[in-house]
Design a protein around this nucleic acid. Structure first.
Lengths: 229, 229
DNA sequence: CGTAGCATTGAAACATGTCAAGTAAGGTGG
DNA sequence: CCACCTTACTTGACATGTTTCAATGCTACG
């Protein structure tokens, strides 16, 4: 990355804001056009439906860009909320416009990043539409491990899932009760082990085969990017 | 739009390729990095799962940009297929890189377009995760009407749904049999009327209330875009 | 006129949701 | 340090929505 590019990115992260556990960064129908970079912590995006049920759309890990939907919608379509205490760096849409003008390669990277996000969403769509409850829960576990590992290479087969079973259910389109049963089944089949918040992937091959999980953050090809400025 | 911008877009659409009904433009795991603009016809993107079931991820209408996932993945994660005979304009990833370098405003528009796409996907995700079969089928009908109308303002309450019930099922995460029953129910409740391929929305208010459908192509805010070049 | 794909319908099986009760763990005020 | 309270987890019995399987009818097309 060129010095100018690095400088531009750093300027996006000049200000910071802390959101405490459970705190809401942006509520659905809010009129804020701000965007954010997640610096630390874990967050999620969800929607509430008319009947009060919730669908969690995405989990966000450090480095993710949040609130991109503010680029098009004057009213936020989704709620962004902190799963654990988090620090975000807010910036204005106009700052993004400047970035796109000055740094085509960064703009292309953001465009590419959006595609990863989009393909991950389609994976989850296919999971909700066409796979069993057990497969969905298993896929969520694999996704969490792989994303946590991206931020901390020392993570092995075992990690702490900082979610309640109700949250797992809202992400996978299941009830908390059924999530509980599926976790138990995965455990009885020897695919995972549990101990409080901690989950261990015991048989990765079998779990991946049972869930069709694909890690979309691997095997990227960014060879087409323009030169840096 | 500036003359230079218009010219750049036209150059993307220099070549054309015709895909006949049912033809496949790009198969999952293909290594092609081409992108496309859909000029005419209707297409869809889907994935096939290990057990042979299919999840339709998106329907594409004229003007849509296809195959953006090729920007990051050397192997296509999805299959793109023609619902009706279609004409697409293929172009290279490098052409997009040039566009981003030369025309920041167009780049920003593509970025913004990606957000519409992404939010539509999350709407469908919430529908699959948290709404009933009837609501999902109803939402699909509303979506089709609104997208067809965007291309042809003369379309009113009645339109031709060029999909088999199996395709509707693969898009909504249901079986063809159940789609049939849901259509019948919607009809019996007076929300829609059917006549062969033709569907009429009889009670739009009630249908929208029953489905939580939101038209994501309306009420956009692109005020932040940089100036054209 | 035959055939192939699609739509329709019924009955039964299955997966997941709902409700209810009980347990374990953690935080807080006395 | 304890008693309490809240929140999350666990489990069972039952209800419901959706799938599966199978049979039939319809329509278009060669």
């Amino acid at each position: 990355m060129t010095p100018a590019e690095r400088d531009t990115l750093e300027r996006l992260e000049e200000r910071t804001r802390t959101v405490r556990r459970g705190g809401i960064l942006r509520r659905s129908n809010d009129r804020s056009g701000e965007l954010f970079v997640l610096r630390s912590g874990l967050m999620m995006t969800y929607v509430l439906l008319g009947d009060g049920s919730r669908q969690i759309l995405r989990f966000h890990f450090p480095g993710d860009m949040l609130g991109l939907s503010g680029l098009v919608y004057p009213e936020a379509p989704e709620t962004i909320c902190a799963v654990t205490e988090s620090v975000v760096c807010p910036f204005e849409r106009s700052a993004l416009a400047q970035l796109v003008e000055a740094h085509p390669r960064l703009a292309s990277m953001i465009l590419a990043y959006g595609q990863i996000d989009r393909v991950s969403l389609t994976d989850r769509l296919a999971a909700l539409g066409r796979t069993s409850a057990k497969a969905r829960v298993g896929a969520l576990l694999l996704e969490w491990r792989s994303r946590l590992r991206a931020g901390d290479g020392s993570i092995g087969e075992s990690f702490s899932l900082g979610l309640t079973q109700e949250e797992v259910g809202d992400a996978t389109g299941l009830t908390a009760v059924h999530v509980n049963r599926m976790l138990r089944q995965l455990e009885e089949e020897g695919l995972i082990a549990r101990e409080g918040q901690r989950v261990t992937i015991c048989d990765e091959r079998a779990l991946m085969a049972a869930t069709n999980y694909v890690d979309r953050y691997r095997d990227l090809d960014l060879g087409w990017l323009p030169a840096g400025r």
